[in-house]
């Protein structure tokens, strides 16, 4: 098991390297550069050249690439933001908690609703209930996250005014007592988490339903029934346990999708997370921040896949034996 993990980790290094290289050149290929922010006729024109020089943008691209890679590998230094001069890694670390919060709760919410929906639909396979659940899941599955977000925001925050429309905390959060602070967070996170949770619930539910139906139709369930084991026990021990194995892979693979979903949701709900940082950095061509954020996303994808594989190996001994 340990050797397996180590092997997978070593395998991730070239992927990370290739990914970073591609991102670097992709970001620099996008038209426009950070100095364009200074395109205002009331400012001196020499400023543009000065800024270029200060940010090292006057160097040839391959030199910029080499020094960038050297700083990351050698010093774990992603450089300072062109925009506010803070280290890009600090900016990312500041923005990470809200994103992880949204992602984490959305995952829990998604798994909960997905399992209820998927198992329910599988048990009542072929009935009207199944049809309704499947239709609802298909509805959310095909829904773009930002659109669903805007609709929920419009309904619950604007029309009904039940929940706040944006931000992670209210203005006077710091003056509240601990319990009220918790409620404050809860109210602010509710809409984004539900939006993202519903979409991932649909993904999980659909997979779970299929694999559950498959498991319940398999030979070992038939054998168990023949042995007179109660239907409830069959469902949990034979059906669910086997149906959950593919779900582990799906959850692992959903992490990148959840991350990109969270990024979009943050922009819709004005949450101070990675999404806002990335969008603003891309628009301002703030290369160090864009690159640091992409690196973060790469790492998330690699870790997601790795966790899925390891989880899979734990749940299914056959994988371990083969590897």
């Amino acid at each position: 098991m340990g050797a397996y993990t180590v092997r997978r980790l070593i395998g991730a290094i070239p992927i990370l390297f290739i990914g970073l290289t591609l991102t670097f050149f992709l970001v620099h290929l996008v038209p426009g550069d950070p100095t364009l922010r200074f395109l205002d006729p009331s400012m001196g024109s020499s400023l543009k050249e000065q800024i270029s020089e200060k940010f090292g943008l006057n160097e040839p691209l391959h030199i910029q690439y080499i020094s960038w890679m050297y700083r990351i590998v050698g010093h774990f230094d992603f450089g300072n933001s062109f925009n506010n001069g803070r280290p890009a890694s600090d900016i990312i670390l500041d923005a990470l908690p809200p994103t992880i919060l949204v992602m984490g709760f959305a995952l829990i919410c998604g798994l909960m609703f997905g399992m209820i929906g998927g198992i329910g639909a599988a048990i009542f396979h072929g009935t009207k209930f199944d049809l309704i659940i499947t239709t609802i899941m298909l509805f959310f599955y095909s829904m773009p996250v930002f659109w669903l977000g805007i609709m929920l925001l419009g309904f619950f925050a604007v029309n009904l005014n039940w929940l706040p429309a944006s931000q992670l905390t209210s203005v006077f959060h710091d003056q509240l007592n601990i319990l009220d602070r918790f409620t404050d967070y809860f109210r602010h996170l509710m809409l984004p988490v539900i939006t993202l949770g519903l979409v991932s619930a649909a993904t999980f539910g659909r997979y779970l339903r299929t694999s559950m139906i498959e498991a319940m139709n398999s030979g070992y369930v038939l054998a168990a029934r023949a042995r007179g084991i109660s239907e409830w026990k069959i469902l949990v021990n034979y059906g669910l346990r086997n149906a959950l194995i593919p779900l582990i892979t799906i959850v692992g693979m959903t992490i990148p999708a959840l991350f990109s979903g969270a990024v979009i949701i943050e922009v819709v709900f004005s949450l101070p997370g990675m999404g806002r940082i990335m969008v603003e950095a891309v628009l301002a061509r703030d290369y160090p921040v864009v690159l640091a954020a992409s690196t973060m996303a790469f790492v998330a994808v690699i870790i997601g896949n790795l966790l899925a594989d390891i989880g899979y190996a734990i749940a299914d001994p056959r994988v371990r034996l083969e590897s």
Partner: peptide, 20 residues
């Protein structure tokens, strides 16, 4: 004076209307 950062004008306008 409190400056609240709200990244899009739809949400911001909503907060003005709700008195936040």
């Amino acid at each position: 004076i409190v400056f609240q950062v709200v990244s899009n004008n739809i949400s911001l306008w909503q907060q003005v209307r709700s008195g936040d």
